[in-house]
């Protein structure tokens, strides 16, 4: 558990370092995730010590968004002025995004299922 958590932190650290060194506009943890994935593919399995803290963190992923979300309280005046534009923009654009993404991907999933059945 402790070793697994350390592995997560180390990959994040390396990710942050790469981002800073290369001046990439990508967050360090995302680079760390890609690196960890590559290492797991090379290794061919997930060590149990890594799986336990990873699945524990992901199970409670939603909680981790609360502190940043409370930061909305610092933008009340802007929200008051633009709330209708923001709300409509978010609803329309999120709905469109779901439709576009699902429509592009849906035929491929069906094809893949046919391949698996053959």
């Amino acid at each position: 558990m402790l070793v697994g958590f350390l592995i997560l932190l180390l990959f994040q650290l390396v990710g942050e370092l790469i981002v800073v060194l290369l001046g990439m506009p990508v967050p360090g943890p995302v680079v760390g995730m890609v690196l960890l994935l590559l290492c797991l593919i090379i290794k061919g399995e997930v060590p149990e010590s890594l799986r336990i803290p990873s699945e524990a963190l992901l199970k409670h992923l939603a909680l981790l968004f609360v502190p940043a979300g409370v930061g909305l309280m610092t933008h009340f005046s802007l929200l008051k002025a633009d709330w209708l534009a923001i709300l409509l923009a978010l609803i329309i654009s999120t709905g469109l995004t779901i439709v576009v993404t699902a429509l592009i991907l849906n035929p491929s999933a069906k094809k893949l299922h046919q391949l698996e059945r053959e």
Partner: peptide, 22 residues
Amino acid sequence: GAQFIHFLLGPATVALAVPLFD
């Protein structure tokens, strides 16, 4: 106080590699 939770977003993002690998 809440920053201790906020901090875990980083390792949680890295942890996404585990279900991805699966």
